[in-house]
């Protein structure tokens, strides 16, 4: 932020009509900021570097960095087309599909994990077949991906759907009449115009996936991801034990967020 905007901001906040929303908004900011600062103030005593050099911590970080992008990719590849269909077509049972899509948002993740277990657990038909094929769906990285996808997929669907819905359908009609088929029209018109929303959805999905704990714990307690390791460490050693991995998680999330937003901002400049 430039000096100019930071100087004009307090001035604009002084205007009485913005006083109440600013005060209320400030509450939220403080409410988030205080715990974060309090938590991070322990980094000095907790020995972040030492904690992160433990093999268990490194495995957890590696596992998270492997699974969350895969879960995000799976959710995006299937969720964006679904979002497009939901934005463009009405069909019998559409309400049901829409409810199913947002169900993981209202479900406690632990319950979601339990549901996944009843579907793909070791003793279910699907789980048995997969395990026999050498791809166990529980207690494996695959299980982690399944849990993360289940919980995080709604974010990209809901956000992308809003993005597609905001595009005037006639822009697509014009593209068709200008000689492009449905796939080319989706690629040339719908996708670029919904790009900002899709990117926002991908970011939210990734953030949710990499922080996923409840469902992951049910489906794949092992191998450890960052969140499950944080839980295990907390049980055994308390707050200071979890600070190193928590900081790592925070850094990863921030880096991804910044990187993706940078890409997103490039697109908005082109959009103009």
């Amino acid at each position: 932020m430039s000096r100019e905007t930071s100087r004009s901001d307090p001035a604009s906040l002084r205007r009485p009509e913005l006083l109440v929303p600013a005060l209320l908004g400030g509450l939220v900011v403080v409410y988030v900021l205080v715990p974060v600062v309090a938590f991070l103030s322990r980094t000095g005593t907790a020995g972040v570097v030492a904690g992160l050099s433990e093999p268990g911590a490194q495995t957890a970080i590696r596992n998270s960095l492997l699974t969350a992008p895969v879960a995000t990719a799976v959710a995006t590849v299937s969720g964006v087309p679904l979002a497009y269909v939901l934005a463009r077509r009405s069909f019998p049972g559409k309400r049901l599909v829409e409810s199913l899509v947002v169900l993981p948002l209202v479900l406690p993740p632990v319950v979601g994990g339990a549901m996944l277990l009843t579907a793909v657990g070791r003793f279910t038909p699907i789980g048995r077949v997969a395990a026999a094929a050498g791809l166990p769906l529980t207690g494996s990285l695959l299980g982690v991906v399944l849990a993360q996808t289940f919980v995080a997929a709604p974010f990209v669907v809901v956000t992308a759907r809003a993005g597609f819905g905001a595009i005037d359908e006639r822009l697509e009609h014009a593209s068709r009449s200008l000689g492009y088929g449905p796939v080319a029209t989706f690629r040339n018109v719908s996708l670029p115009l919904a790009r900002g929303s899709i990117i926002a959805g991908v970011v939210l999905t990734f953030a949710r996936a990499i922080g996923e704990f409840g469902a992951t714990m049910m489906v794949a307690y092992n191998p450890r991801t960052m969140p499950t390791r944080i839980w295990v460490k907390f049980i055994s050693g308390g707050i200071d034990e979890i600070v190193p991995v928590a900081v790592a998680l925070l850094v990863v999330a921030l880096v991804v967020l910044t990187a993706v937003q940078r890409v997103g901002r490039v697109s908005t400049v082109v959009d103009r």
Binding site: D168, R170, L171, H173, A174, R176, S177, L178, G179, Y180, G181, P182, V189, P192, L193, V270, D271, R272
Partner: peptide, 20 residues
């Protein structure tokens, strides 16, 4: 036939120019 094979030019009430 689909629209892309009809060779029809379309103009609408609202602008459908591609903003990108």
């Amino acid at each position: 036939d689909p629209p892309e094979s009809r060779r029809i030019g379309l103009g609408f009430q609202e602008s459908t120019l591609y903003p990108h």
